[in-house]
Amino acid sequence: MLARIFRPAKNAMQSGRAKSRDWVLEFEPASARRPDALMGWTQTDDTRAQVRMSFDSKEEAVAYAEQNGIPFEVFDPKPAKRIIKAYADNFAFGRKMPWTH
Rank of each mutant, 00 (worst) to 15 (best):
Y64F: 15
R95Y: 08
A86W: 01
A37C: 04
W41H: 14
L25N: 03
F75H: 05
I5Y: 07
T42N: 14
F55M: 02
S57R: 13
K58F: 05
R52P: 09
S54C: 11
F6I: 04
W99K: 08
S20W: 02
R4S: 01
A18N: 08
F72S: 03
P77I: 12
W41D: 13
E73D: 00
I5G: 00
R17N: 05
D45K: 10
K81N: 12
E66S: 14
M13Q: 10
G16F: 01
I84C: 02
P77K: 06
K85F: 06
A88W: 00
R48N: 11
A65I: 14
P79D: 05
A63Q: 13
P71Q: 02
D56Y: 09
A32M: 12
S20E: 10
A65M: 08
F72W: 08
D89N: 00
V62N: 11
R82V: 12
A65V: 15
W41Q: 15
S15W: 10
K85S: 05
F55L: 03
A32S: 13
A32Y: 14
D76V: 01
R48I: 00
I83W: 13
M1H: 05
R17L: 12
N68Y: 15
E73F: 08
M39Y: 07
A37P: 02
F91V: 07
A65D: 00
G16K: 01
S31P: 03
A92E: 10
G40K: 11
M13A: 13
R82M: 05
F93E: 14
K78W: 10
I84G: 00
E26F: 02
K10V: 08
Y87W: 02
F75Y: 12
R4Y: 05
K78G: 00
L38I: 14
A61T: 12
D22Q: 03
M39E: 06
D46G: 06
V74P: 08
R52N: 12
S57F: 07
A63R: 12
K85E: 04
V62Q: 13
P29V: 10
R48T: 01
N90P: 00
E66M: 11
W41A: 13
D45F: 12
E59I: 15
F6C: 03
Y87I: 03
N11D: 11
R95M: 02
A37D: 09
T100N: 14
A37H: 06
R82T: 13
V62G: 08
A12T: 09
G40V: 04
R48K: 14
P98Y: 05
A80T: 15
D46R: 04
P29H: 03
I5Q: 02
P35I: 10
A63L: 11
T42H: 07
K58P: 05
E60S: 10
K58N: 04
V74N: 07
F75L: 11
F55K: 07
K81E: 10
P8Q: 02
W23H: 00
S20Q: 12
R21M: 05
N90H: 04
I84H: 02
E26H: 04
F27S: 06
F75K: 11
R7D: 04
Y64M: 06
P77Y: 09
G40D: 07
R52A: 15
H101E: 15
P71G: 15
R33M: 09
Y87M: 03
V74W: 01
G16N: 09
F72V: 11
S57H: 11
S15Q: 03
I70F: 10
E66F: 08
M53F: 10
D46P: 01
F55N: 13
A30E: 15
I84W: 08
D76C: 01
